[in-house]
């Protein structure tokens, strides 16, 4: 088992475990924290997959900014395990089963394909380097880049419209 494999399995366990903990935690604050753990694990995978830039962005944007926002809102609302609403147990089971089925179906479908068994991914490569991404982003992807601003504008307007108190 190479160091890559060890890292892979470690990160995988961390991601899946974190995800499960996030979903099952009663306290919303714990959920947020577990989700941050997942994000860190995924960032680790990004590095394994040679997507260093994304790994960094993921930690800054997701684990840093977005999750803090979530945490902030949760704190604002003063949520804890006591006032956490609980679903009907049957509905929970149904939800679990549905999610599990989804997983099973995916895996069953994909396992059949033999081509995928031999397809390997290695570490190393140029793709994820920031200069390459930056060049592409500002040439080929300039339209989405620019148009994203519209998205942000509208999100901003939305936050203003919805968030302003008193009207």
């Amino acid at each position: 088992m190479s160091i890559t494999e060890i890292l892979f399995w470690f990160l995988t366990a961390m991601a899946v475990g974190g995800a499960l903990m996030m979903v099952t935690s009663k306290n919303p604050v714990y959920s947020v924290l577990w989700l941050i753990v997942v994000f860190f694990a995924i960032s680790g995978h990004y590095i394994l997959l040679n997507a260093q830039f994304l790994a960094v962005v993921n930690i800054i944007v997701y684990a840093g900014a977005i999750m803090v926002l979530f945490l902030f809102v949760i704190m604002l609302m003063n949520m804890n395990a006591d006032n956490e609403p609980q679903k009907n147990i049957w509905l929970k089971i149904a939800g679990m089963i549905a999610g599990g089925c989804l997983l099973l179906v995916f895996i069953a479908a994909i396992r059949q394909t033999e081509a995928l068994q031999i397809q390997k991914v290695n570490t190393g490569g140029q793709t994820g380097l920031i200069h390459l991404l930056g060049k592409t982003l500002f040439t080929d992807y300039v339209l989405p880049f620019e148009i994203s601003s519209v998205l942000f504008l509208s999100a901003m307007v939305g936050a203003v419209v919805l968030g302003r108190k008193g009207d």
Binding site: A19, L49, G99, G100, L102, Q119
Partner: peptide, 20 residues
Amino acid sequence: MPINYYIFLAIALFSIGVAG
């Protein structure tokens, strides 16, 4: 690593999300 592993991992996370 076979690509399969990553796919399965992604799907697992996705499914956990859905279940959540």
